[in-house]
Simulated scan of single mutants.
Amino acid sequence: MRTTAGRVGTTTGVALTLLLSACAGGSGAPGETATPTAAPSSAEPAPSATTSDSPSPAASASEGTEPTAGLGAFTPPGTEATTEGDASGYVVTQVRTGEHDGYDRVVYELAGGEGTPGYRVGYVDRAVEDPSDEVRQVDGDAILQVWIIGTTYPSEGGPQEFSQDLRPTGGDIAHVVRPLTFEAMTQSFIGVDDGPRPYRVLVLADPVRVVVDVQDD
């Protein structure tokens, strides 16, 4: 008798379990499979950017990524964008270019310093290197001169300065002349096709970057 009662109890338990399972799964439409919802994870705030009107660095951004929307107006070609910042000791360690919807971009990445870099950016008739007064030949129809303020010479064992010219393929940036540092400022030139064109300057943080966007067609 004990054996029979045990079997009856087991059968009843299985039936009850199946019934409860059927009730729990009956809330969706026929043929749907319930998908568990993961708990929301905390996300980093979207990085903001500063234009020539404000020298403060933006919120943190991952290395090699820069914001592409909500960046403010472009500066007319005949106007110089400038801010002094409060930086010292930076070295331009990397320069890269990219194409985006409505503009092309040059990124100057800095390391080893502190504070917020300043900049002076504007179009010039000739690419005259300081302090040698050597005139550089720059590809493109217009020359955008970039000064980054608050930099220093590279030191042995420290961050090293980017030392190459860039000639991107595609887009309206034809040439970026390698950075050259003198008296706490770093100079570079951007050759622009079909220019001069409106531009804007951003200062970003983590890592520190000075970004120049050139408006395209």
Results as ranks from 00 to 15, higher is better:
145 Q>P: 01
214 V>H: 12
157 G>R: 11
190 I>F: 06
142 A>K: 10
171 G>V: 01
166 L>T: 09
196 P>Y: 12
162 F>N: 00
127 A>C: 12
179 P>M: 14
162 F>G: 03
169 T>E: 08
139 D>N: 05
170 G>A: 09
159 P>G: 01
181 T>R: 13
202 L>H: 13
204 L>M: 04
190 I>A: 02
158 G>Q: 09
185 M>R: 15
128 V>G: 08
214 V>F: 03
184 A>Q: 14
153 Y>T: 12
152 T>H: 08
135 V>T: 14
133 D>M: 01
205 A>P: 00
153 Y>D: 14
140 G>I: 00
213 D>A: 03
201 V>N: 07
172 D>P: 00
185 M>S: 05
207 P>S: 08
153 Y>K: 13
152 T>A: 15
196 P>L: 13
171 G>M: 03
153 Y>F: 09
210 V>R: 02
134 E>W: 01
144 L>Y: 08
128 V>Q: 07
134 E>Y: 04
165 D>K: 01
208 V>G: 01
173 I>H: 01
150 G>V: 11
137 Q>D: 06
138 V>Q: 02
215 Q>E: 11
161 E>A: 14
146 V>Y: 07
190 I>C: 02
213 D>S: 06
170 G>M: 04
122 G>N: 08
171 G>T: 03
207 P>W: 15
207 P>H: 09
204 L>G: 11
189 F>D: 11
207 P>G: 07
198 P>Y: 06
187 Q>M: 12
211 V>S: 09
135 V>I: 12
194 D>T: 09
181 T>H: 13
210 V>C: 08
128 V>N: 05
175 H>S: 09
189 F>K: 02
214 V>E: 13
130 D>C: 04
190 I>D: 06
174 A>F: 07
164 Q>F: 06
155 S>G: 10
212 V>C: 04
151 T>M: 05
172 D>V: 15
204 L>W: 00
136 R>H: 10
132 S>H: 07
213 D>R: 11
185 M>W: 12
167 R>P: 00
197 R>S: 12
167 R>H: 10
129 E>I: 11
210 V>T: 11
189 F>Y: 14
189 F>I: 03
170 G>N: 06
200 R>V: 02
152 T>F: 05
168 P>E: 00
210 V>P: 03
174 A>C: 08
160 Q>N: 07
188 S>P: 00
142 A>F: 10
212 V>Q: 10
141 D>W: 04
159 P>E: 03
144 L>T: 05
126 R>T: 13
122 G>Q: 05
194 D>H: 13
159 P>S: 00
153 Y>W: 06
154 P>L: 14
174 A>L: 07
141 D>G: 04
213 D>V: 10
202 L>Y: 05
185 M>V: 06
160 Q>V: 11
142 A>W: 08
141 D>H: 07
126 R>Q: 15
174 A>N: 07
160 Q>G: 04
187 Q>L: 10
180 L>M: 09
155 S>Q: 14
154 P>S: 14
170 G>C: 06
133 D>A: 05
209 R>M: 04
199 Y>N: 08
131 P>V: 01
165 D>C: 10
209 R>P: 15
179 P>A: 08
204 L>Y: 04
134 E>A: 09
165 D>R: 02
159 P>W: 10
149 I>W: 09
204 L>S: 09
